[in-house]
């Protein structure tokens, strides 16, 4: 690091900046393409009913301390009894729902579309970068790295004397890939298509899609069943006492 390399300004004008601009534009393009291709699903009445039941059960669970034990128990029975409780799903129904899910071509289609819109641009950009911008130093990262990173960050350079912090354009591409995520969430808003990892999680969690509604019904039923009910009112006196005490102290 005795003397810094001087990089050609042409590299900045024709590699560094264009690469970033292209990746931002691709991200925006993907956002709008995925917005356009998102097929509008006709919500089916049963799925919505189940979803609402889950939401109601969840509200009961989170607000359980606000109602007396007796009221809570009667509501719980309304939700979870084994004959006609809202959350109770007969065994064969659950299996049927699952089979239906696998048969539904729309669902698979949607998933494939999402995956493709994620994979294709990335592969293309990576190939583009590798093909056109390899074999020279494109940037210098401002922190030192150990020589182990050389093979990864300096592919196509093959000079062991160059400091590892000088990296080729491929590493600049990866830096963009990971670093622009926050930038996208700022310019495109919350539900942007670039946050693929989160989307996958949501999909497998499956609330809004009616994806495995019967399963979420079962989960909700279980957590409602094991809830230890505690009414908050008896303790409220203590709390009121504290609040009043604080108030008195302030005055």
């Amino acid at each position: 690091m005795a003397d810094d390399l001087v990089l050609d300004t042409a590299i900045r004008n024709w590699v560094l900046v264009p690469l970033s601009v292209v990746m931002v534009l691709i991200g925006i393009l993907r956002y709008f393409v995925s917005k356009l291709t998102r097929s509008s699903q006709n919500p089916d009445a049963k799925a919505i009913k189940e979803g609402q039941a889950v939401i109601r059960a969840r509200n009961l669970r989170s607000g359980s301390h606000l109602i007396p034990s007796k009221s809570f128990r009667s509501r719980r029975i309304y939700f979870t009894n084994e004959e006609n409780g809202l959350l109770y799903v007969p065994k064969e129904d659950a299996q049927k729902a699952q089979a239906q899910m696998f048969q539904d071509p729309n669902m698979a289609m949607d998933m494939m579309k999402k995956n493709l819109s994620m994979i294709i641009p990335q592969t293309l950009t990576f190939a583009w970068v590798n093909f056109f911008f390899s074999g020279f130093v494109a940037a210098k990262i401002p922190f030192p790295l150990t020589p182990r990173f050389r093979a990864m960050l300096q592919n196509g350079i093959d000079l062991s004397t160059v400091d590892v912090s000088y990296v080729s354009s491929r590493s600049w591409y990866f830096l963009n890939l990971f670093g622009l995520r926050g930038f996208f969430s700022l310019i495109l808003g919350e539900e942007n298509a670039t946050d693929d990892a989160q989307k996958m999680m949501q999909m497998s969690g499956g609330g809004g899609f009616g994806f495995n509604a019967s399963q979420s019904l079962g989960v909700e039923k279980d957590s409602l069943d094991i809830l230890q009910h505690e009414w908050a009112l008896p303790k409220m006196e203590h709390r009121a006492k504290d609040v009043l005490k604080n108030l008195a102290k302030k005055l």
């Binding site: 990089l7 940037a139 401002p142 600049w172 830096l175 926050g182």
Partner: peptide, 21 residues
């Protein structure tokens, strides 16, 4: 830690443009 990658990206970018080229 979520913003660290964005930080590194823009840090590198500004550093290269101002100090390296």
């Amino acid at each position: 830690l979520g913003g660290l990658m964005s930080f590194v990206l823009f840090w590198t970018f500004a550093y290269d443009i101002v100090h390296i080229f």
